[in-house]
Design a protein around this nucleic acid. Sequence first.
DNA 1: CCTGTTGTAGACCGATCAGTCAACAACCCC
DNA 2: GGGGTTGTTGACTGATCGGTCTACAACAGG
Lengths: 209, 209
Amino acid sequence: MPRPRSFDEADVVARAREAFAETGFAGTSLDTLLEATGLARQSLYNAFGGKKELFMRAFLSDTAEAVEAVEFIRHGSDSPIGRIRAQLVKMAVAHGSAAAPASLFTKAAVELSARDPEVAATVAAAFEAIRAHYAACIVEAQEAGEIETSADADSLGAYFCALIEGMGTLGGAGVPRATLLDIGFTSLAAVPITELGRAHLGTDDGDWS
Amino acid sequence: MPRPRSFDEADVVARAREAFAETGFAGTSLDTLLEATGLARQSLYNAFGGKKELFMRAFLSDTAEAVEAVEFIRHGSDSPIGRIRAQLVKMAVAHGSAAAPASLFTKAAVELSARDPEVAATVAAAFEAIRAHYAACIVEAQEAGEIETSADADSLGAYFCALIEGMGTLGGAGVPRATLLDIGFTSLAAVPITELGRAHLGTDDGDWS
DNA sequence: CCTGTTGTAGACCGATCAGTCAACAACCCC
DNA sequence: GGGGTTGTTGACTGATCGGTCTACAACAGG
């Protein structure tokens, strides 16, 4: 019986995510948010509770997406090591596009994780999940004989976690796509790949002008 | 003949740097700044011009320090590859201390470089300087026979640039020192070190509890 | 000791902040 | 086609924002 909403909640969260990713939490005013989402003041309060709550919705959504983007290396038809390489390429392409601001996940982690326990906990959990995804994929590659069994999967997982975070920051600061791709390919040299693994990698880097 | 200032300008910039590093530019109010620096409203305007100008002073100061911290790998008595390793350890220790917020350089790069051209230019120049320092040190190591001559010094420079940026972000988000050290050591595996280089590296990792 | 110059102190400004309130409008069920 | 529930609208609130103005204090040269 109630009057139906004139907006799509998920769509509002997505637009809020863009706004917060552009100017951060403190730098984004409610009026900016209202303009970006198109809804009225009271509607925002009715549907979400307030600025902080809407931010958390957007932040959690972006964090989940960031983890998912890495989780994708766990599945797929090609070899585990090939999937890690493809993931690095994807990261470079995503963060290296011109005028692409840093992701809300990175932005929130830098801006708020030292002050807000909830943000800090979410960021820590996301890092751990990303690290675990990389580590599991590396173990899989070891079982497939693509990576030396002497390699420490956990260390490599944390290493890739730091690397993609750094790539995201550099990309957000304007470093071009080609440089990010170069960084990604260079980083693979830290993985002790076997002869078999090297054969599985191939050399089809695609065309990323 | 004028009345002398009751504060030290460099000291004020240093305190402002801490304040901005904690809460970012938009998140730090003028009142917070006045309390942190101890000076009166008008004194801040007389001496610096305004919030933005004081921020730039603090930001430039922190950026210079960040570049200097890497520039140190160009000099020293031990081998080039050993100096890079020592630098990574230093970064891990600095950013891995408990409750250490991300540096103002990183914070400003993430928060403002997409919006403020002056910040963006400064960040880009700093990244380029850091990359160049690493590259030059790697060339030096190649000339000393510690690194394979086939290695691409420029690529490795950009790679280390991304890596230390990622370490800084992770550290600011609460990742412990031991993990950062692990990441630093793991990253060295991407460098094709010769037998001679490996001998020069040693295994004295120190005690970083 | 007076004067000129500069620093300091606190009141003050309009603008903007996040958030609230009350009147009005739209829709579904009966 | 009412009634009741919910969404929307825009005016409004006190607090805080960055920045300015004016009165006063401190020092150096004469």
